[in-house]
Simulated assay, not measured.
Amino acid sequence: MLASVVIACYKHEAYIEECLETVYRQNFPDVELIIVDDHSPDKSFEIAQRVLKKRSFAKRFASCSLLKNPLNLGAPGTWNRALSLAKGDMIFLLNSDDAFSKDRIRIFASQYEREKLFFGFSAVEPIDERGRPITTYQFPTSLRYAIDRGRITGSPLSWIFLDSQVAASSGNFVLSRELLRKIGLLSDLKYCHDWEFALRAVTVVEPKYVELDRYMYRLHSTNSFRSLSKVAERETRACMSSYCTNAIAQRPINRACLSPINFGDAFYSFIKLHPNFSYWLKQLYAPYHPDHRTVDWNEWTMPLKWR
C-alpha cells in the first residue's frame, strides 16, 4: 500500500525541517511526500528545498514533490493543490508546524488499509515551540472527554463532530483516496475548512479514532486558530448548512450519522444530546423541527420522512 503524506506549508521556517524529519522517520516503507508552500514570505520553501536535496532523504520515499504557489492561496487552496497530487491509497495530512509519531502511518495502515472508504484521526499531544510536551494544556483533554462522553451515551463518533472539530486540526486527518473522490476537496473557509470537510466525510463513512497520541500539535504565537477565531461564528453556520445539505436534505450514505432520514422521529430526541447542533438546526432547518409553528398554517409541521 502506498501512503501519501501531504503538507500545506506557510511561514513555518522554524518548524518545517522537524516536521519533514518526522515523516522521514516513519517505520512504514511505501510513502509518497508532497509539500506545497503557500508563497511563504520567510525561508520555509528554501529550508524544505534544502532538506529534500539530501540524497538519503529523497531516497527514503517512493516520490517527493515540493511546489510553491505563485501567490498566496490560503490554507484550503494549498491543501487542495497538495491533495490533488496524491496517488496513495491512504492520505495523511500534516501541518508544517506539527509532527508525526514514527509509527503513525503504520498504525493506521495496519488497521484500516483494506477499507475503501475511510476517515480517521488520532489523539493529539500538544507540544511547545521547542517540541516539548505541554502537560498543562487542557485542549486535548477536552477532546478526549467529548469522545468518551459520546461513547458512554452510545453515540456514534460521527455525532460528536456535530459539537466541534474533535480531531483538533486538519493535519490530524487520515482518509482513503476513494473517500476524497466521493466528497471532494476542502471548501474555501478561512477558519473552519477542516470541520466542514469532516462533516462531509462523516455523512459518507463512520470515522475511526486511534486513542494513542500519534499527532503532535504545536502551540505557538502564530497558530491560525488564534488569529482567525473572529470569523468562527459565520463559518460555523456554513459548516452546519453543509451538514444539513448532506445528511438531512437527502439520504446520507453513512446510515449511522445523525439524520431524520436515518432515525425518523427519534432524531429529534437524539439532537438534544448535542446542544450546538440543535441550535444551528433550529436556525437553518426550522420548517423540519417539531417545535416550529408555520406562519401560514398555524399548525405543527411534520418532520422529514423516509424517501
Rank of each mutant, 00 (worst) to 15 (best):
F92D: 03
V51S: 01
L212M: 00
V51M: 05
E46C: 00
V51L: 01
D37T: 02
R25N: 14
E233L: 12
V31I: 15
T78Q: 02
V36L: 08
R55F: 09
I91L: 03
A146G: 01
R151V: 04
L273A: 13
I127K: 04
H292T: 09
L273S: 13
M240S: 05
G88H: 10
D265E: 14
S227I: 14
I261C: 03
G184F: 09
L212D: 13
D37C: 08
R177Q: 10
G154E: 02
I271T: 13
R251W: 03
T22Y: 03
G88T: 12
S155C: 06
A266M: 13
E46Y: 09
A99C: 10
K230I: 10
S63M: 00
P303W: 04
L179K: 08
G264R: 10
V166H: 07
R149N: 10
V31Y: 02
R251I: 13
W297Y: 13
I134N: 07
A249Q: 06
S63L: 00
A99T: 08
D97C: 08
E129Q: 11
L117Q: 10
E113P: 04
D194T: 01
I134T: 07
R104P: 01
S221V: 15
P126D: 04
C64I: 08
S241N: 15
I183C: 09
I253K: 02
R293D: 06
A58Y: 12
V36R: 04
D296H: 08
A198M: 12
Q138T: 14
W297G: 07
T22I: 04
E113C: 10
L258E: 04
A146F: 07
F28G: 05
F139E: 12
M240F: 15
E178S: 13
D188I: 00
Q26L: 01
F121K: 08
K272H: 14
C244I: 14
L73Q: 09
S96N: 03
G74M: 08
Y191F: 15
Y191P: 01
E18P: 01
P207R: 07
L83D: 03
A286L: 11
D291F: 03
F45P: 00
R234A: 15
H289K: 03
R234D: 12
T222L: 15
L71N: 08
F263P: 04
S110P: 02
R307F: 12
S101E: 12
E129H: 08
S40C: 05
C9H: 06
E46D: 12
S56I: 11
N95F: 02
A247N: 06
D194C: 00
R293G: 09
R60D: 02
Y209I: 01
A75Q: 03
R144N: 07
V31S: 05
R307M: 10
E115Q: 15
H289L: 07
V51N: 02
S187F: 02
L212T: 10
D103K: 02
Q26P: 10
P140H: 03
I271L: 11
P287H: 04
P252K: 06
I134D: 10
A109F: 00
A62N: 13
R25G: 07
Q26T: 09
K53N: 14
